[in-house]
Amino acid sequence: MKISAEDLSAYFDAKGVKDGCPLCGTDSWSVTPAAGPDGAIEAGEVALEVTLQLVKTNSWVPMLPLVCQNCGFLRMHHTHWIQKWLEERDNAAG
């Protein structure tokens, strides 16, 4: 499942996520765009399967990285929770 910028914004609003960077207070963030099989970047979508490798356990966590455009602070969101909320929202809408 791809997550659009609108979906991400709706999720953050529903969860009460604050816009400001915890380090500098700026509310300007960038996300990693999603590349299709041909390597082309699709507008309005964000990468879903960016993974953090855990060497000792050989496991991974699907993460969505957001970067503060002022100070470079990196925040990560576990995509499972975003997808779960989107599915519940879509199921409730019918």
Rank of each mutant, 00 (worst) to 15 (best):
L74K: 11
D38H: 07
P65C: 03
L52F: 04
V46W: 12
R75I: 14
D7F: 00
Q69R: 15
P22S: 09
P22Y: 04
Q69G: 08
K56W: 01
H78R: 14
Q83D: 02
L48D: 06
L48S: 10
G94P: 02
V17T: 14
Y11L: 08
L48P: 00
S4F: 04
M1N: 08
M63I: 15
T26L: 07
W29V: 10
W81R: 08
F73R: 09
A92N: 05
C71M: 03
A34M: 10
L23N: 10
K56M: 08
C71D: 11
A35Q: 09
G25Q: 03
P33W: 05
D90P: 03
V46E: 01
E87V: 04
A34G: 02
P37R: 12
K15G: 04
R89M: 01
H80V: 06
A47Y: 04
I82D: 00
F73Y: 15
G94H: 05
G16M: 05
M76G: 05
H77D: 07
V61N: 12
K18D: 15
G25C: 06
G20V: 02
L52W: 07
I3M: 03
P37D: 13
W85R: 00
N91L: 07
K2M: 09
A43Q: 15
W81M: 08
G36D: 15
L66H: 01
